[in-house]
Computed example of a mutant assay.
Amino acid sequence: MSVEDELKELRRELRYVTDRLAILDCVMKQSRGHDRHDIELMASVYHNDGVDEHGPVVKLGPDYGEYANQAHSSVFVDHLHNITTHTCEIDGDEAHCESYVIGAMRSRDGKTVHIFGGRYLDRVERRDGVWRIALRRCTLEWTMNGDTSLLSSGSFTGFIKGTWDKNDPSYARPLDLEKTPVKKW
């Protein structure tokens, strides 16, 4: 292989790796925004004309965050969306992704956690050099419930408790043990 061919191949591989990381970051930022109720972060991962379909609710992606925050906070006190298996097929400026998601959502009663398993099926597009979601379709594969009364038993006293706003310690820059205020169990 000539040096020129080798450089061409390296550029192609670097483009692929850079695109994959940008796409994965996009998917992860949406989940982080979801769990921190950060509307700006959630909106930033959708194109202005992007669409999010969660069951019967179909919203323009940038508007999904406000709807989701209201819907979640009406029945849950906290939640975590975990992205697990993630596959992605890139074809130029368009990519099709499948991301498995496990959502754990604690009810307002403080005693029950609802766990959901599903997938995000995304068409992600690079526009003006930025990868964002053009279409997200959410599947639901299974659910189960569990008891969370252990959280209020005192067993976790002193552990940090996340918040649904930018006061969550994950936003602290720099993260500092002494200077970063936290809410605790």
Results as ranks from 00 to 15, higher is better:
V3P: 01
V3M: 07
D5R: 12
D5W: 07
L7P: 00
L10P: 01
R11A: 12
R11W: 11
R20Q: 14
A22W: 12
L24S: 10
H34T: 09
H37N: 15
I39S: 07
A43W: 11
S44M: 06
S44A: 09
Y46P: 01
H47P: 02
V58L: 07
P62F: 07
D63Q: 08
G65A: 08
G65Y: 03
Y67Q: 03
N69G: 14
Q70Y: 03
S73E: 11
S74D: 12
V75K: 14
V77A: 01
L80T: 04
N82R: 04
T84I: 00
H86V: 06
H86E: 11
E89T: 08
E89A: 12
I90V: 05
I90P: 00
D93H: 09
A95I: 01
I102R: 02
M105T: 00
M105P: 01
R106N: 02
R108G: 12
G110T: 03
K111C: 06
T112K: 02
I115R: 03
I115G: 00
D122M: 05
R123N: 12
V124C: 12
R126A: 04
D128S: 09
D128Q: 10
W131G: 05
A134V: 08
W142I: 00
W142D: 09
T157N: 13
T163C: 06
W164C: 06
W164P: 02
P169N: 08
Y171D: 02
Y171L: 10
R173T: 03
L175W: 09
D176H: 07
L177C: 05
P181Q: 01
V182F: 13
W185D: 07
